[in-house]
Design a binder for these strands. Structure first.
Lengths: 125, 125
DNA sequence: ACTATTTTTGACTAATTAGTCAAAAATAAA
DNA sequence: TTTATTTTTGACTAATTAGTCAAAAATAGT
C-alpha cells in the first residue's frame, strides 16, 4: 500500500558510494547527491534521514562484501580521515573491520590505495 | 618601511598546519583559521592570497623537514585525499615527495598513520 | 609635519551548505 | 469513491562558506 518507490535503495546507495569516494564526505554536497541519485532533497531526507546516515549505509553496504576492494578501501579511508572522530558508530564500524583484517598487510593496502588514488606513482598506475 | 608585522609567518603557518591536520582541508574553515592564528580574515588574505595557498605553504613547510614525521604524513594524506585532483601544483609536490621516499615502506607508514589517527587499533595506540 | 609604504581591521557580499515541510501524487484496501 | 498510507516534489530557511575592500593604524625616510 502507498505509492510505489521510484528509486531502489540499493541502486541509490551504490551511486552515493561512488560520489563519496570521488569527492570525500565533506566535499560531497547534498546537491551532488541529488545529481547522482536522481532523487530530490526531500526524497533523500525522507528515505535516509541525514547525510551522515547516507554515508553509513554506503559504508555498511561496502563492508557486506567480504573482500577488500578499492571501493571498500575508499570508504574506509574517508571514514578514518573525516568521520571517525565525529561519529562513534562509524568509529566502531571501522574498528570492527580493522580487527577482522589486521595482520594481512592491511596498512600496506591502505597506503597503496592512496598512492594509486592520488596518481602520484610515476608509472601511471 | 611600513607597519611592523604583528604575526610571524612561520608561527602562523605552524598553527594552520595543526588545524589542517586536525580537520582536513575542506572542513577547516576560514573562521577556524582566524581562530587558531589570531589574524583576521583580511590579514590572512593579504598575507596568503587564498585558502589553497595557505595549505600549500603549510605543506611545503612540513616537507622542508627531511624526516617523515606524523605531521608530514598528515599533510601528505590530506593532499592525496582532497587536493591532488584539484591542484596540479600540490599533485606535483606529493609526486616529488613520493619519488624521494618510495621503497622505504612508505605505503606501510601511510596506512599505519591513518589507523593511529582514527584510533581504531584496539590497543589504544 | 608630511609622504609613501605596509599591515591590520572588520564589516560586507554572493554563493553554497545541510536540512525542513506542506502539498501533491500514487497506490491498495474498504 | 473514499480513506489510509507511502513516496515524491521543490520551494524554503537559517547557517556557514571563501573571499573582498576601503579605511585605519603603524612605521621610516624626507
Amino acid at each position: 500500500m502507498g505509492r510505489n518507490k521510484k528509486y531502489q535503495q540499493v541502486d541509490v546507495i551504490e551511486k552515493m558510494t561512488d560520489l563519496f569516494i570521488q569527492k570525500g564526505y565533506t566535499a560531497a554536497s547534498l546537491d551532488d547527491l541529488v545529481k547522482v541519485t536522481g532523487m530530490l532533497r526531500g526524497s533523500l531526507y525522507s528515505a535516509f534521514g541525514s547525510k551522515q546516515k547516507m554515508f553509513i549505509l554506503a559504508l555498511q553496504n561496502c563492508l557486506k562484501n567480504s573482500q577488500t576492494s578499492d571501493k571498500t578501501l575508499g570508504m574506509i579511508v574517508i571514514s578514518m580521515m573525516e568521520l571517525s572522530n565525529k561519529s562513534e558508530q562509524i568509529k566502531q564500524i571501522i574498528k570492527d573491520w580493522y580487527k577482522k583484517n589486521k595482520g594481512q598487510f592491511i596498512e600496506n593496502l591502505i597506503g597503496s590505495y592512496l598512492i594509486k588514488k592520488a596518481k602520484i606513482s610515476g608509472d601511471g598506475i
